[in-house]
């Protein structure tokens, strides 16, 4: 405010400027909030209302004016949580558990891998650094829907590249049978009981491989940026004090990377938790909803089942989960901030 007072000597004018600024601000916000009011806030309220009804295909034509529409209270929510939905193979808490595990296991692999490759590429005197950096960015460059479809073909049970590669490898060991693993359809679990209550079928591992390919290069890019901002003097001082390479890594590199990598990991977790594209395009949630995450199931309820009331309730639940996740992850990010300050 100070510059305004300096530039406007008359007190009357200063007052007007301040009130004017308020009005200007609201005027500038008006278009955005009108649009968001119509296509975001109102629909969200409408959705909350729909979630207390038995809205279905029969009501599509006239909406809330429909004579057949019944208010069912919390029945939709109850059905979702207790398995009362007329949908096969769906269990809310299994899907929620899988979604958590899916996001967590991905980030737990992507972040260390990204950091390690970034450190590797930061090695002084390494040849062809720029070529490798250019190559390793390629997965980030590819649109994720293209990546998902390509990986889907790679994991094809009959003609996929993965089975063909495995066949060539097994032939080296004297096997003659071609590998015919139905990656995306098989019900069997390669490691039974790895996650209590949640079956992890082959498709989960196929999705993990595809998403690993997709995910670590982004973490590597972020880590590279952070690595290059670490002052070289720290390593030189450590060198003089006789610290070994691993000691330098754990006591300089890791703590200095933490403020950057923790928010990146949080961002990665939230993105993966709601990663519609890859899951929908690779497995569609199958087999038997074993790889379904919350958002793909919400989509199925809307698109294929036509259970709009239940789908609305489910969307409200998804939003509450997203909210809780945000609050938790926000705390984690804040925690590192205070760690830095201390």
């Amino acid at each position: 405010m100070a510059p305004i007072t300096l530039g406007t000597p008359k007190p009357a004018k200063r007052k007007r400027t301040k009130a004017e600024q308020q009005n200007i601000a609201y005027l500038y916000l008006l278009p955005a909030f009108i649009v968001m009011g119509v296509i975001a806030f109102y629909p969200l309220l409408y959705q909350a209302a729909v979630s207390f009804t038995d809205f279905a295909i029969k009501d599509l034509r006239s909406g809330f004016a429909s004579e057949n529409l019944k208010w069912v209270g919390l029945k939709n929510y109850q059905d979702i949580l207790t398995g009362g939905l007329p949908v096969q193979d769906f269990e809310f808490f299994r899907t929620l558990g899988f979604d958590f595990w899916w996001a967590l296991s991905n980030v737990a692999l992507h972040v260390p891998a990204g950091v390690l490759v970034a450190v590797l590429l930061n090695t002084q005197g390494l040849w062809f650094k720029k070529i490798y950096r250019g190559l390793y960015i390629l997965p980030v460059v590819f649109p994720s829907i293209v990546v998902a479809t390509v990986w889907r073909n790679i994991f094809d049970g009959q003609y996929g590249a993965m089975n063909q590669a495995l066949t060539s490898i097994s032939q080296l060991f004297g096997s003659v049978d071609p590998v015919r693993l139905r990656w995306l359809e098989e019900y069997a679990q390669p490691i039974p009981g790895m996650l209590p209550g949640v079956p992890l079928v082959w498709a989960y591992y196929a999705m993990m491989i595809a998403n690993f390919w997709l995910g670590w290069p982004f973490m590597c890019v972020v880590a590279t940026g952070a690595l290059q901002s670490i002052p070289k003097e720290l390593y030189e001082a450590a060198e003089i004090d006789g610290a070994s390479g691993p000691q330098q890594f754990w006591n300089i590199t890791v703590p200095m990377l933490r403020p950057t990598m923790v928010p990146a990991a949080v961002l990665g977790f939230n993105t993966t938790f709601n990663l519609f594209g890859l899951v929908f395009w690779m497995t569609g949630g199958g087999p038997a909803r074993a790889t379904e995450i919350l958002v793909t199931f919400a989509y199925d309820l809307t698109k294929n089942q036509g259970l709009y009331g239940a789908a609305a309730a489910f969307a409200v639940i998804v939003f509450i989960v997203a909210m809780i996740l945000f609050l938790i992850t926000n705390r984690i990010t804040r925690a590192t901030e205070s760690y830095d300050a201390a």
Binding site: L29, F33, M36, I39, A40, F41, P43, L44, Y46, Q47, V50, F55, L60, G63, N274, F276, L294, V295, A298, Y299, T302, Y308, A311, A312, A315, V318, F319, A322, M323, F326
Partner: peptide, 25 residues
């Protein structure tokens, strides 16, 4: 108002798809 904007960002895309589908229909 900033929280209101963030609120919409936080909502997974599918959460708005259904009510818009019904309203636009």
């Amino acid at each position: 108002l900033m929280m209101a904007v963030f609120f919409v960002i936080l909502m997974p895309g599918i959460g708005l798809a259904l009510p818009l589908f019904l309203l636009f229909n």
